[in-house]
Amino acid sequence: MTTDFALFLSEQMLMTALIIAAPVLTVALVVGLLISIFQVMTQIQEMTLTFVPKIIAIVGVLFLFGHWMLSTLTGYASELIRSIPSLL
């Protein structure tokens, strides 16, 4: 295995992880921002107020995008496993 191929595998792994995590992180960011704006407007500084809506939103995203996320991850893993003979 060459250094270039190792860098290619690392880049591919990081891009796959970023693509898989993007929907969950984006929804958590947007919901957190909306709740923070709501807290500033109403001056309610309850710490637990942020957690429940975020958890509900993240579970919803996982239900919506879970199949796609899993198929992307299994596609990457199967491609990586298929490339093992060329590494030896």
Rank of each mutant, 00 (worst) to 15 (best):
M1N: 09
M1R: 07
M1E: 08
T2N: 15
T3I: 14
D4S: 12
F5A: 13
F5K: 10
F5W: 12
A6P: 01
A6V: 14
L7G: 06
L7Q: 09
F8I: 08
F8M: 11
L9R: 12
E11H: 13
Q12G: 10
L14M: 12
T16S: 04
T16A: 11
T16D: 02
A17P: 00
A22N: 06
P23Q: 09
V24I: 15
V24F: 13
L25K: 04
T26D: 00
T26G: 13
A28V: 11
A28Y: 00
V30Y: 05
V31P: 01
V31C: 04
V31G: 03
L34W: 03
L34P: 04
I37C: 07
M41D: 01
T42F: 02
T42I: 03
T42Y: 01
T42W: 00
Q43I: 05
Q43N: 10
Q43F: 09
I44N: 15
Q45H: 15
E46A: 14
T50P: 00
F51K: 05
V52L: 14
V52F: 15
P53C: 04
K54T: 11
K54D: 06
K54P: 08
K54Y: 05
I56F: 13
A57R: 00
A57N: 05
I58D: 00
I58T: 12
V59K: 03
V61C: 05
V61T: 15
V61F: 03
F63Y: 14
L64G: 07
F65I: 03
F65P: 00
H67E: 14
H67S: 14
H67W: 09
H67K: 13
W68N: 11
W68M: 10
M69Y: 02
L70I: 12
L73H: 01
G75R: 06
G75D: 12
Y76S: 06
Y76L: 09
Y76F: 15
E79Q: 15
I81W: 04
S86G: 13
L87W: 14
L88R: 05
